[in-house]
Each structure stands twice: as structure tokens, then as C-alpha cells.
Amino acid sequence: MSTGVSPQHRRSFVRWWTGRSPAAGSAVMATGILSVGLHLMGQENLSLAALALAAVMWSGLAADFTGRLLNDRARWIHEADTPPALTAVAATCVLGTRLALLGWTALATVLLVLAAVVCLVLLPAVLRDSVLRVRHHAMPGAVFLVCVATQGLAVLGATLAPLLHQTWLARAALAAFCLGLVLYGLALGRFDLRNVRRGAGDQWVACGALAISALAGAKLLASAAFTGTFHDALRIAALTLLALAFAWYAVLAVAEVAWPRLRFDVRRWATVFPMGMTGVATLSLATAAGVAGLRTPGKVLVWCAVAVWCAVFAGAVRSAVRPV
């Protein structure tokens, strides 16, 4: 019985799928963080739907990542030392964080271990062969993924620490949090500010890296391992990071209006993720830092991210169908 899909169409789809860049991992990051945000707002059905979609996306990307490693080693090595490769780490951490919130602690722990191993392989290569080799102010927004990947480990580790009753994991998450802040400073020195005006979407990671740092701070605040003066310092640091993320968000939003870039680009998923992450960080700090007034703006930011996700998803579907 015919499936209605010709061999030529199948070959076209395969070429499209295998030709995607590592930046496609940001689609999992964007969808997963919206699942977290919708969960925090009590929109459980929508949250679970987003989680299911993120899990399917992650599985496809994981299979692609493994396939390239085994069957196209030259391409895997070529891509492994570029910042977009770190979306594999960040996407795994975001998915693991949502699963931990769902109570699937064992699976979330497996994803944390997997993300940590991949990060130990990819991060040194990215820093050595891409970030440190490039002159100052010359890289796109993807350079901030060195911070996002590290803070992703901090978020997932700090989320699991109280669930597993492991104080050492909270301290490891704190170390990742501090390292992420150092890497943000390094990335900022390499970022080409002209991308605020002409970037294809990943310029928003400058905001998202600060937002996920603020979320990591919120998760650390919830840990019983940090008390007293240190807890107060963490609270100030997290709120400061959120304020800086808001500042970047405002600048980037104004730039989108002033210089519209409406054509679909896979890097637009790297716009959705920071928007959603800023909302999630805001909602999380409303509770962790005891600032109830942050809940309303947090909800607004998450819904804005949902709207942009729908637009980018529609563009992605058209992009996939066009070559077929």
C-alpha cells in the first residue's frame, strides 16, 4: 500500500534533517523551558504537552548526535568545537529540570550525568578552539552558550540536590553557578554588539544567559545547604542578575521593533528560549527571594514566549516542508 510519499520527497526530507546545524538544539531548550514556565503558572496540561514535544525533539537530536559521532566523525569533530554544540548540554539540562519537577528524579539524575559528561567533552574544545581564538567583539550571540550550558548544570543540580538529600550536589551546583558567571564575562568580551541590530535570533542568548544564571541563583536559594549571610548574598546576586536580564530583554525587544527580522532562521529558537527563561527566572525568584510582585511580570513574560514559540514553530514547519 502506498504511503503517498515519493522516494524523492523522502530523500529531500532526509537531506533537510541531516543538514541541520547544532543550533537546532535550541528548539528543545525553548520548548522545555516553556513547559517549566507553564507548570509554574499552574497550566499543567499545556506544560505536559510541551514536555512531551520537547522529549520527542530531544530524542531525535540525541539520535542525530550519536549517528554523526559514529558515522560521520569528521563532521562531528568540526561542529563539536563551536558554541552551538553546547545546546546539547543545555537542552538535556532543561529537559531534566522539568522531569525533576514532575517527580521523575531517577531519570533527571541520568540526564544530569549525561549532560555533565557531554559538557566535560565539549566545553573545553569550544573554549580552546572557538572562543579564546577569536579576537574581542567578533562573535555572534551563540558565544553565550558557554555560560548557558554551565548554568544549566547548576540549575539541574540545585533542583535535584534537595530531592536526593545530597548537600555535595548543591555545592557542586554553586561551583557551576560561579563558573557560569566567569564564562559570561568572557563571552561578553567576545560578543559583537552589532548583532543587537542585525543578529538572526541568537543575539537574545546574551539575555538568556543572565536569566538562567538568575534561575540557578533561585534554585540555590531553595537549598538548605546555604544559610545566613551567604544566603542573603545569593539572594542579592540572583535579583541583580534578573535585573540585568530585564535590561538586555528591553534592549533586544526595542531592536526587534527598530530593525525587524521576520524571515525564519533556526537561530530564532534562541530567541524563544531567553524569553521563556526570563519568565521562568522571574517566577522562580518571586518565590525563592520572597518578592511576590514578580509573579505578574513573570506570567506575562512566559505568555509572550509562548506566542513567539508558536510563530517560530510555524516558520520551522514551513522550512521543513519547503524542500520536500
Rank of each mutant, 00 (worst) to 15 (best):
residue 255 A to E: 15
residue 296 T to V: 13
residue 236 I to Q: 10
residue 80 A to V: 03
residue 314 A to W: 13
residue 120 L to T: 13
residue 38 L to R: 12
residue 135 R to I: 01
residue 84 P to K: 07
residue 66 T to V: 14
residue 61 L to E: 04
residue 25 G to E: 01
residue 254 V to R: 15
residue 39 H to T: 12
residue 135 R to C: 05
residue 115 A to F: 07
residue 20 R to K: 12
residue 271 T to M: 00
residue 200 A to Q: 15
residue 27 A to H: 09
residue 81 D to E: 10
residue 219 K to I: 04
residue 151 Q to F: 08
residue 276 G to A: 01
residue 214 A to S: 14
residue 58 W to E: 10
residue 130 S to E: 09
residue 237 A to R: 03
residue 208 G to K: 05
residue 164 L to C: 02
residue 86 L to S: 03
residue 309 W to L: 01
residue 225 A to E: 08
residue 318 R to A: 11
residue 247 A to V: 06
residue 217 G to K: 08
residue 180 G to R: 03
residue 275 M to N: 00
residue 314 A to G: 06
residue 123 L to M: 12
residue 89 V to Q: 06
residue 118 V to G: 05
residue 195 N to F: 15
residue 245 A to Y: 05
residue 132 L to M: 14
residue 166 Q to D: 15
residue 24 A to C: 00
residue 70 L to Q: 13
residue 42 G to N: 05
residue 108 A to E: 06
residue 276 G to F: 06
residue 120 L to P: 04
residue 145 L to R: 00
residue 172 A to Y: 12
residue 263 R to K: 11
residue 232 D to G: 00
residue 136 H to K: 07
residue 276 G to M: 02
residue 84 P to M: 01
residue 209 A to D: 03
residue 300 V to K: 14
residue 214 A to I: 08
residue 273 F to C: 00
residue 87 T to S: 13
residue 69 L to G: 09
residue 22 P to H: 04
residue 193 L to K: 13
residue 137 H to Y: 05
residue 260 P to C: 10
residue 200 A to D: 15
residue 306 V to D: 12
residue 127 L to D: 02
residue 247 A to C: 07
residue 48 L to G: 04
residue 46 L to M: 11
residue 239 L to Y: 10
residue 307 A to K: 07
residue 94 V to A: 04
residue 290 G to K: 09
residue 76 W to Q: 13
residue 190 R to T: 00
residue 80 A to M: 10
residue 282 T to M: 04
residue 298 G to V: 04
residue 50 A to W: 10
residue 35 S to H: 05
residue 300 V to F: 13
residue 162 P to V: 06
residue 301 L to A: 15
residue 171 R to C: 03
residue 271 T to L: 09
residue 113 V to K: 06
residue 122 L to H: 01
residue 130 S to N: 14
residue 307 A to C: 12
residue 10 R to V: 08
residue 169 L to H: 11
residue 264 F to A: 03
residue 310 C to R: 08
residue 37 G to M: 10
residue 236 I to R: 12
residue 223 S to I: 07
residue 94 V to H: 08
residue 73 R to P: 07
residue 192 D to P: 03
residue 92 T to W: 11
residue 71 N to L: 15
residue 319 S to D: 15
residue 309 W to Y: 14
residue 115 A to I: 00
residue 148 V to T: 02
residue 93 C to W: 08
residue 103 G to E: 01
residue 188 L to C: 00
residue 109 T to I: 02
residue 277 M to I: 00
residue 196 V to Y: 15
residue 40 L to Q: 13
residue 241 L to E: 01
residue 249 Y to A: 04
residue 143 V to P: 01
residue 294 L to K: 10
residue 289 A to T: 09
residue 90 A to T: 08
residue 200 A to G: 11
residue 202 D to T: 05
residue 311 A to M: 10
residue 57 M to V: 01
residue 174 L to E: 09
residue 50 A to Y: 14
residue 258 A to G: 06
residue 51 L to Y: 11
residue 146 V to S: 06
residue 221 L to A: 08
residue 90 A to V: 05
residue 254 V to I: 15
residue 94 V to M: 03
residue 224 A to I: 09
residue 117 V to K: 01
residue 204 W to D: 09
residue 43 Q to G: 00
residue 54 A to I: 03
residue 21 S to W: 04
residue 35 S to E: 02
residue 101 L to W: 03
residue 211 A to G: 08
residue 63 A to N: 10
